[in-house]
Design a protein around this nucleic acid. Sequence first.
DNA 1: GTCTATATAATGATAGAC
DNA 2: GTCTATCATTATATAGAC
Lengths: 184, 184
Amino acid sequence: MAEIANRAGVSKANVFHHFKSKDALYLEVMSSACQGHAQFTEQLLAADLSSAEKLRQMIRYDFEDMFANPQRTQLFLREVFNCGHGEGRRPAEQVFEHNFNVVVALFKQGQARGEFRADLDPAVAAWVVGSAVMMFFQSRETLRRIPTVHCAECPEDYAEKMLDILLNGLISREFAAAASAPAH
Amino acid sequence: MAEIANRAGVSKANVFHHFKSKDALYLEVMSSACQGHAQFTEQLLAADLSSAEKLRQMIRYDFEDMFANPQRTQLFLREVFNCGHGEGRRPAEQVFEHNFNVVVALFKQGQARGEFRADLDPAVAAWVVGSAVMMFFQSRETLRRIPTVHCAECPEDYAEKMLDILLNGLISREFAAAASAPAH
DNA sequence: GTCTATATAATGATAGAC
DNA sequence: GTCTATCATTATATAGAC
């Protein structure tokens, strides 16, 4: 609270005048941090694009948004994933649930169009995509220090490669073809 | 420190007798939490299995290990991903880097054998797999509260579906075939 | 709304007896 | 090794004047 007051250029008592407790201030910050979060994805659902392209644009947008507001993003992720204080968690979880459901809808749409595999669980797909996006943000600093990793510097590069893996899989087509037709 | 002393059934002063400072205690806890972490993966590299099966076993082992030691895992993830205190971070990052490199090696091996796509970046592949595994642990509580998600209850179920997406991709084979041969 | 001054509690840590 | 007692510091919060 002392640091907040200092940076704001006011006295500590003044901060307590405007926010009755530390928790109240925190809740206010969380709520406001969750405001601008991603109406983009919804309009994407109605766009005239292939499902794969929609997914690509969604991921690109998420990366841009996250890196444009790193502090907000870190606060958000911490609150949602680290069992935050009962109060501040609610607004963050509402945003999370809403965004998650939009991604699930995107996958269902892709399945209905025959573009995505009919046999996959859309919730799992959304979860995996979300993981790859959010974990990149969360683990970038750590991976930056690992010498064998080069793509930590460039989110766009990572995004493309990651999307390629998710869309087309890890297994080589030739190998898969040979395995499914061993008599050949 | 007061709570630690209470739960241990000793006085606060006694805790300070055994660990000269709070930071020293924390570092000890982190180091010990990082001990048992995954020699399993290394022996997997030398096993006589397909690369996909190795990946499956690695993921299954990670899930078991994480859920068998939830507190250790949470501590570890927090330290690695949330810009922890300079000191406690080092042991966690060493474990992380080591494990990461083993997974990268697994992917390189799979590529050398022609089982995994030659054109994928093994570091990105390892990152995506790690994300899907660790994020499941971190976000399970949150996703549990989303009504549309069913697989949060069963890690094994999620692991299989997630692995299937990573190995075979999201795009339906028929659609991909049609797209690559539009004249057909 | 803003300040100074102050109350009250918790926290990290030490002193010294047993 | 363990305890009680204590200290210095910091944190959350309030009182009351301007």
